[in-house]
Structure formats: C-alpha cells, structure tokens
Amino acid sequence: MSFMLPSASPSARSVVGVADDLFSALRGESALLPPADSVVLVVVDGLGAISLRGHAGHARALTTGMAKKDVAYSVFPSTTAAALTSIVTGVWPGEHGLVGYRVLDPARDVLVNQLSGWETDGIDPLTWQAAPTIFERAGRRGHESFAVGYAGYAHSGFTKATLRGAEFVAATTAESRIEAAYELAHSHPGSLVYCYLPEVDKAGHKYGIASSEWVAALEDVDAALSTRVPPGVGVVVTSDHGMVDVAPSRQVVLDETHLEGIRHVGGEPRMLHAYLEPDADAVAVTARWRADLEGVADVVTREEAVRAGLFGPTVTAPAASRIGDVLAIARASWAVYDGTAADQRGRGMVGQHGALTAEERQVPVVRLGAFSR
C-alpha cells in the first residue's frame, strides 16, 4: 500500500519546538523571539488554527495581529497525551513514548490510559515518560519554573510525567489562571511559566466546535487573554491540537467479525491502535481492515507508520512496543469504534481528534507582551 502524509511544508513549524523557543528567548538566544525578562507558555487545549480563524470575531485578543504564518503543526497522533508531552519535552512521541490515548503496556499485556489512567492503570510517570521536561532543563540553568492549572491536576500521574521540575500553582477560572501566570512571571524575573486552559477542548468534545457552547468557551478564554501582560514578560499562546465534529452518521462500529485476530484495540476513534493475537496473520488482518475501512480510514502497519516518520524521526524501543501492529487513521470527519468494548461512552463525543487532517494538526502560535510584533 502506498501511504502519503498530508502535505506540509518542510520548513513548517512544529509544536515540538515551541517551549524551547521560549526558553531560548529567556536566555536572549532565540532566532524567532526577542529577549524577555520572563516567559509564559499558554496552552489552550483543543484550539485548532482553522477553527480559531473561522471564529475570529469571537476571539479578538487572539486573532488581532495574528499573521498567516502564526501556526504550527501538532504531532501524530494529534491527541492531548502525545501532543502536550511533546510541547513540554521538546521531543516527538517516538521518543517520549506517549504514542496515543490508550496504548498497550506490553510487559503486562494490558491497555493503559496515558492521560487519566496513570494511577488506576499502574503506570510509573517517572519511567514511562523518561524524557526531561523543559522545566527540568530550565532548573539546571538556574531558572524557576511554574505550572498553573486546575487544583485537581496538581498531583496526577500525567502532571508528574509532563510537568516535573515546575512548581504547581492552582487557579479555578481561565481568567484567574492567566492572571496567576502573569503575576508569577512578573514577580520572578528569569522564570518560565506554563498555563493550561482546557475549557475549549471540553466544550468541543461535549458539544462540537459548531456549537454555541464552544463559542462561549472560546470567548471566555479570549477575554482572559485580553489581560494586560506585565512589562518585560513574553507570552506565546498555542495549542496541542484542533478537532473535527463527528456526526452519528459518520460513526463506524467494528464488531467481532472485523476484530478477528485482534487482541486489544487502543488509541481513540480517530486513530486506533490494533494489537494482534500472537498467532494472527498480520497480512490478512491488515488487508481485511483496509477493505472494511476503505474511504473511512487509512490503514497502515506499525512498520509503515514508523518508516513514514509519523511518530517523529526517532522511535525508541519502548515507544515502538506501545504502537499497534495495525493503525487506522480516520479520514475527513469519520470515527471508528470498537463495538465490543464494555464502555461505549466515547460514542457520545461530538468534537474529536487524533488523526492527520489540517483541522486537527494546525494550531495557532500567537505572540503577546514582549513577544508582540
């Protein structure tokens, strides 16, 4: 099978380098950003560049002065666990190892949730995600780091895996988180501050990006970002991924016939990882999925995906062991579900992500404060 990635310029910016750009600006060494006394990285979860531009009238703080080039490409899969980890470590999923939403732990032959299942699924955040974070690297250079988010995230396994090296500061609303981030940057010269805003993503999953609820969440985040940035503080606002709305008529449900020879189905509906039974005929299963999902998803083997560079230029042995034997990457606005799974709540989600469309992969990179043009 010939598999071709969606086109992107070889010089296109990636979210993988955004945090390092800020840290370089803090040291006065960035080729992209002017020097700053302190820096703030704001991640608006789930905010794609295409959907942002389509709703520019509801996001004037974010889009006023936003140039055509103020975009970056998310990683694959375009999902929170993989992309947020790439943003804060500066490496691709093939290196940090978070290669999907739910993936196989081959040592125990069980699926684990890499976003919210660290405690319940028994994953050690210090070994499962071994890449150093930007905050750890900043600390070694004598710079303080802070992470601002919901109090409930402070001690989660995902926080320990991705934000280690930063002092966690809790705040409730988007506005209070931005205010706290700016105040930390102002009162701690030379610091690196991370601020996480999940409101847009939550509204998108529940109601879709075409909904009034999603627009309201965008307006709230934009209002928070209209807060005056303190002098000398450089701010970059970006996202981990965008999303597409999936209608019920675009849901494809796999039954036992489709899943013959498959031991586990991981990932998420727009990017499934299929892990085969030890005695399964991999060629036959791949051929069957290509026939079953023709026009709905691109079906590739692990080897094809790695060779195509989907998970980045380097794929470590631990990361490779977590990638499915067969992957189903949804096209357009389709989603593919394991109909045999006990939990079918995911079929109620409207906004989804994980695949390779421009709506999912293109994210904004907006400069504020000392970084403004």
Rank of each mutant, 00 (worst) to 15 (best):
S249Y: 10
A332C: 06
D240R: 03
A297P: 03
Q114V: 14
P230N: 06
A31I: 03
H188M: 03
G204S: 14
E119Y: 09
T301P: 11
L192Q: 09
R108S: 12
Y73N: 13
Q352M: 14
R263F: 11
A287V: 10
S156R: 08
D70V: 08
A147I: 01
M271H: 14
A181H: 00
E303P: 10
V253C: 10
S249C: 08
I323N: 04
T173R: 02
E213R: 13
P189C: 13
L41A: 11
A297G: 12
S14N: 12
K202A: 15
G339I: 15
R108Q: 14
R164I: 13
A147P: 00
V18H: 04
R290V: 05
P230D: 07
V75N: 00
D281R: 01
I50D: 14
G351N: 10
D343P: 10
D220P: 01
F371H: 01
A317P: 02
V336N: 03
S145M: 04
N113V: 14
L5V: 12
L197G: 01
V39C: 14
T64M: 02
A308R: 09
A317F: 04
F146D: 01
A370K: 00
G54V: 07
R177A: 15
A185I: 02
Y196R: 00
R288Y: 10
G57H: 13
R250V: 12
V200L: 11
D222N: 12
S145I: 05
D343S: 04
G354D: 14
D124T: 13
L111N: 13
V336W: 06
S156G: 09
M1E: 08
V215L: 10
G100W: 05
F76Y: 15
P35H: 05
A370V: 03
I262L: 10
A210S: 11
V18N: 04
D240M: 06
G324S: 12
A210P: 03
T120C: 02
K202M: 12
P10T: 15
A181M: 08
A328K: 04
L327C: 14
E29F: 12
V265Q: 09
W118G: 07
Q129N: 04
T340H: 05
T120S: 15
K160Q: 14
A370M: 09
P6R: 09
G267V: 15
A107H: 12
D343T: 05
D245H: 08
V40Y: 00
P106I: 13
I323D: 04
S24R: 15
E95T: 10
A8T: 11
Y153R: 03
A274N: 08
A224L: 06
P6Q: 14
F76L: 08
E199Y: 03
D45M: 00
K68D: 15
P318V: 03
D222A: 11
G157R: 01
V40H: 00
E175L: 13
K202T: 15
V215F: 06
R108F: 02
E183Q: 14
L104Q: 06
V246M: 04
T159E: 03
G354W: 08
V252F: 15
P125N: 15
A305N: 06
T162K: 05
E119P: 06
T127E: 11
A154N: 01
M243W: 04
T172L: 13
Y101S: 08
R367A: 04
S11R: 11
V15R: 00
L197T: 02
A8P: 01
